[in-house]
């Protein structure tokens, strides 16, 4: 009803918000948003969110809160090897989930392993999101030949399964570089390998949204004003195509963690001296039939819970950000 409310304005100028004001304002707008409302309303998502946060905290605080330091070879005692979980016969109270073949605590191993998985997951998704978004934005906004080239590259990329690309890159790096350098480069190589299979998704989605947004009238208005195309892309189009990027990033995180685990399981990822969920499962599965089931089952369960929680979050975010589905 305020359309014509010409209240005598005490301040003739539009007030400027301070940084703190902006943050407070942004936070209160978030608490009032439909996304937060839909979050509050679904217990499953609250649980998934809590589990994800717990796992991430556990992984990154591992050096301080893990019961044993599995990265320190000196602290290992081979006498502790093959201990079953604490609650079974022969279990040891200080090794809650048992130990592996070298006497490393499974729980601590999982925590450190998850840290490796998450670091690689976040980094590869971030890389893929940045590259994919930029390429998708350019492809959609500029169009023409640039668009054709980028999208054909993306098409070719899609014909290779993610694992194959990762194996390929890993293989090349492994054979070209000396062994020591290759091992030092394990993380960057894994991140690059996984990101190269993920960027296509970002690029395609961003391109699609950009094609829609660039014909909207606010973009045309910016053109009439005479704004430089790069600025239009960055300041007008980009903020309006970021919603889907967030969704894909979340879903890709689960995929990236799985890919990393798969690669490590196949032995081309992180070397077995450094635990990751994949390497833990690989080492454990050799003992699966000799009775030491905990060595592979617990990292497996951790992986399943992590991926499931992140996926649930991603699915929910997709629905919450898409007003048509609500």
């Amino acid at each position: 009803m305020a359309e014509m409310a010409r209240e005598p304005s005490q301040q003739p100028t539009a007030p400027e918000l301070t940084l703190v004001g902006k943050v407070v304002d942004g936070w209160s707008r978030f608490l009032d948003s439909d996304v937060f409302y839909s979050f509050k309303r679904s217990p499953l998502i609250i649980v998934a969110f809590a589990v994800t946060v717990l796992l991430i905290l556990g992984a990154f605080l591992a050096p301080w809160i893990a019961p044993h330091d599995t990265t320190n070879m000196a602290s290992l005692n081979l006498m502790d090897a093959f201990k079953p979980p604490a609650w079974s016969v022969g279990g040891d109270g200080s090794f809650l989930l048992g130990t592996d073949d070298q006497g490393r605590d499974m729980l601590s191993g999982i925590m450190f392993g998850m840290q490796a998985s998450l670091v690689i997951g976040f980094a590869s998704v971030a890389l893929a999101a940045i590259v994919g978004t930029i390429l998708g934005l350019i492809s959609g906004y500029v169009g023409g030949r640039v668009d054709s080239v980028i999208m054909r590259v993306a098409d070719v990329q899609l014909t290779f399964p993610a694992i194959l690309i990762a194996l390929l890159i890993d293989g090349i790096v492994g054979s070209v570089l000396p062994r020591n350098t290759a091992e030092e480069l394990t993380y960057p190589v894994l991140i690059l390998a996984i990101a190269s299979s993920l960027w296509v998704n970002f690029a395609r989605t961003v391109r699609g949204s950009t094609l829609v947004e660039k014909n909207r009238e606010y973009v045309q208005a910016a053109k009439v004003i005479g704004i430089h195309p790069t600025l239009i892309m960055v300041r007008h189009v980009l903020p309006n195509v970021m919603g889907p990027v967030l969704v894909i990033a979340t879903l890709s995180l689960a995929l990236a963690i799985l890919t990393e685990a798969t690669l490590s399981f196949l032995g081309v990822g992180i070397p077995s001296s450094e635990p990751s969920l994949g390497t833990l499962i690989r080492i454990g599965q050799e003992y699966l039939f000799s009775g030491e089931w905990w060595m592979t089952i617990f990292p497996g369960i951790a992986l399943v819970i992590l991926v499931l929680a992140v996926n649930l979050l991603g699915d929910w975010l997709r629905d919450a950000l898409n007003p048509k589905l609500r």
Partner: peptide, 19 residues
């Protein structure tokens, strides 16, 4: 020259950047 002409669009819901 651009500064001296401007345009008003049809759809008031699409012509302002929502962000």
């Amino acid at each position: 020259v651009r500064r001296r002409f401007q345009m008003i669009f049809q759809d008031p819901f699409a012509s302002l950047n929502p962000r």
